[in-house]
Structure formats: C-alpha cells, structure tokens
Design a protein around this nucleic acid. Structure first.
Lengths: 195, 195
DNA sequence: GTCTATAAATCGATAGAC
DNA sequence: GTCTATCGATTTATAGAC
C-alpha cells in the first residue's frame, strides 16, 4: 500500500504541497539562486509562474512563509541524507555517505546548496528556526566525525563550503553534471581523513 | 616623494576615494555581507553612516555605482595578490602564494570574500564588467596552474569556494582569526597537488 | 558635504468578485 | 485558485537650500 501524503512529511516539518504551492516553491528557489533572497520580490515569483501576486498570497500569507517552504524543501533532501548517514556503523562510513549525498544534491540542483548555505537571509532563517537548526547541527556533527575542536570545525566547514560553492563557480559552468560530480568527489575526498 | 593619489589606482580601475566615499564603501560592504546586495537599500547604508540618502547620492548617482565601488575595493586586494603571484618563478609557487593571500584576505574581512564570489548580484556584475572579469580570469589561471581541463577547473573552483565559504560557516563563527587561518591553510593545502 | 522635500515606481500585503 | 483593485510603506532617484 502507498503511504498517505502526510506520512511523507519529513521530521523537520515539511508539509504536503498542492500543485500551486509546488510551482511557487520551485520558481522561488530558482529566483533565490539567481537573484538572492533579498533581491527576489513576490512579483518576480508571480511573473515566473504566470499568475498575479494575489494568487501567490492565497498560498502563502507572507514572503517569510515562502522562504520557510523553500527551506523545508531543500532541507528535506539533506535530512534524509543525514538520517541515512547516522544509521551507518562507523563515523567514517557515515561521513563518507553524507558527503556523497551532499555532492549529488548540489550537482543535481546547482545553486540550491548555495542558497541554503550562503545566502545571508537563509542563514539567519536557519538559525532562527529550531527544527532547521537541529538538522544542520546533526549534519555538522556527522561531518565533524565525533570531534568538535578547531581542526574538525574548519574541516567540516571547508567540505560544506567547497561542495556548495564549487557547483556555482564560473569555472565549472560549462561542465556537465557527470563530469562535475566525478571531479568534485575526487577533490572533496582529499579533504577527508585518509582511510 | 609620495606618489599622487591617482597613481595608486589599481590596474582594474579603482579610483581614489574621498573620506565620504570610503565611509559609504565600508558600510555597504558590511551590509552586503550581512543582508546580501539585493537586500541592502541605500537607506540602510545612509543609516549605518549616520547621514541621509541624499548625502549618499551626492557621492554615487546610483546603487550600481556603489556596488561597482565596493567591487573595485575588494578586487584591488585580490589583484595585488594575483600580480605578486604572476611574478613568481614557478606555477606551483605562484599558486601557493596566491592561495595564502586569498586566505589572509578572507580571514581578515570575513564575509568580504563571500560577497565577491557568491552573491548572485556581484557574480553578474563581475561577468558584465570586463576589467573585473579579467582580474578573475587571471586569478583563475594562476589557481589552475596552467591547465584548463575539468580536473583543474573543479580543483580551482573548490579551493576558491572552500576559502570564501568556510570563513562565514556557522561552525567557525567563534574561532579567532589566527586559529581559523592556521586550520584553513592546512585544509586548503590538502586540495593542492603535493610538492 | 549634508540637509529637507518630493516624485515615481515598486514593495509586501489585503479585500472582495468570480 | 485566480483575478482586479487598492493600501500604506519603502525603494531608487532628483531638486534645491545651506
């Protein structure tokens, strides 16, 4: 039997979306990546979908709710990766699995990861909302592999930044997804402890 | 004899600044890092300095001119590093010197590097203005060390992204500059070919 | 160099018809 | 679910006094 839509909601609180809501979230995420969150207006989102602002407001009452819905969507993929990683037997295997999934997600939707990790508006959002903060904390814990000293902190920060930032770098714009993923795996592997 | 102010202008076109212009640029850079370029208004910049919008407009006729001046300021430091690197005898030494300077600049003004490399508005600005684009191209050429294949591209992108992104990562927020710089040097060194 | 005052456009957001 | 129409606040930008 298929599970109900509600049962698919992620632990971090992602709600089920109507088709109209899905269109808004996808358009918003694209615009956030291209223009920044602060540089994206509701009019731009409405125009991208081909409706009026009022139609957008019927789905989400404020711009913050749209940012929230986008954050939930993007974090849902990451959270699934964290959950899978935490189920691994060793910390090394957990980190390896997580980093691999992070690379996949970043390459699949270039710009998505950078919105989540680097847009200043989103960074404040993640700090302000406890469920999001907890997901990021769990992700960071896996990345740091049990340690929390400066070395582990900078290593985890470097890995996360390298993945999110490399996929939007002008130098890799022309690379196809497979080539980018393959090279990115090699580079990021250098940052992780040798096994 | 001291050189005239004009002679200090960088090859990329950075102009001399009056004290009023310097205040605007510094306030703008801070706000760009905190709020994103798209999320920063001229009113915010004026408020941060303690003057009115009209006073800001007397120095720069449009918001784009302010962005331009900020880009020039930030790029001036990077360009000096590129020039110094290009004067080195070997490509390996050039890259080593450049990466070291990039880390220093990123740590000294955390968030500055991310504005330059990751804010979508700034990225479009760098592509649109040839002098800026040329500086970034020279920087990328040194980073890639003579090659331009996918491996070299992703490696350079990863190094640049790791530096710019790591310094604003929540995990390193509490680290002092010296600890951050020391660890960052170690991590980024892993990404470069072994000598 | 800075101010007050203002114009014109756009912003986030709401009311009410269909 | 989408529309037209509108509100008040804020935005970029200018004019003119000091």
């Amino acid at each position: 039997m298929m599970r109900s839509k509600a049962a698919l909601a992620s632990p971090s609180g992602a709600a089920a979306h109507t088709p109209a809501q899905t269109r808004i979230i996808e358009a918003a995420l694209t615009l956030f990546a291209e223009q920044g969150i602060g540089g994206t207006s509701l009019q731009m989102i409405a125009d991208a979908i081909g409706v009026t602002k009022a139609a957008v407001y019927h789905q989400y009452n404020t711009k913050d709710e749209i940012i929230l819905a986008v954050a939930e969507t993007v974090l849902a993929g990451l959270e699934a990766a964290v959950v899978a990683a935490e189920a691994e037997r060793s910390r090394a295997r957990a980190r390896e699995l997580l980093v691999g999934r992070m690379i996949d997600l970043a390459v699949e939707t270039r710009g998505m990861a950078s919105v989540l990790q680097q847009d200043p508006v989103m960074l404040r959002f993640l700090q302000a909302h406890a469920p999001f903060r907890r997901v990021m904390e769990r992700l960071n814990r896996v990345l740091m592999g049990g340690a929390s000293d400066p070395r582990a902190r900078v290593q985890a920060a470097t890995v996360a930044a390298a993945i999110a930032g490399a996929v939007i770098h002008p130098l890799v714009l022309a690379l196809d997804d497979d080539a980018l993923r393959a090279q990115l795996v090699k580079q990021v592997r250098k940052l992780l402890p040798i096994r």
